[in-house]
Amino acid sequence: MLEARNLHKAFGQVRVTNDVSIAVEKGERRVVLGPNGAGKTTLFNILVGELSPTSGTIRLGGEDVTGHSVEARAKRGLARSYQKNNLFNDLTIRDNLALAIATATGAASRMGDTLRDPAIVERIEEVAARVNLRELLDQPVDSVSYGARRQLEVGLALATNPRVLLMDEPTSGVGPEMIRAFHDLLKSLPRDLTVLIIEHDMDLAFDVADQVTVLNYGEVVFEGTPGDTRESSLVNEIYLGGSVDA
């Protein structure tokens, strides 16, 4: 579904992504692990088009999207959430979700009032329910808690009804309760949705992952099932050998 081959990215002399290849099947849950600075977020940025790779190709659903803009890739069903909240802070949660849904459905260019379209209203409720924000729909983002913003971060990505969903540390900075709620959310997602998650919480990672990819110094150093990953001495070394984070 999402396939990257031989991705390279260098800023001057600094190689942040070095010959990364990754192939994610349709419906697969892939967890990307790696210490801070391993190039996980950079990889996501390249996959969605916010950074262009120095070399390499990216295919989405079989189509080469390497030269496509962020918005063109998003239009083809590639959605992401951000590690640092990247929301419409001065708008309400309802408006946030409406913007995402309208963009995905084409209502963004219509003359009709988005919030009077029953299909959109229904979809807002649906997404809000999924990310536990129904009670807060009419609150402006800058007045709700950090946890609620993390939920909205994922909600925005989900609202576009993507084929491939990239989530960059969705649970960073939230408490155990919310991590569990997020866990449930992941499990409730439709099975045909392809998901890549950058995650630090190992238990969560191993619980939901079909496959695990481990990055270190911009390179893929390991790929395998959660069981193999747990056993891997290399992964243990990377994680326990001093460069552990979070």
Partner: peptide, 15 residues
């Protein structure tokens, strides 16, 4: 208004 509020995210949403 979405663009005014956060242009980058609008783009990421596919606009």
């Amino acid at each position: 208004v979405g663009i005014r509020s956060n242009e980058g995210r609008m783009r990421a949403l596919g606009l």
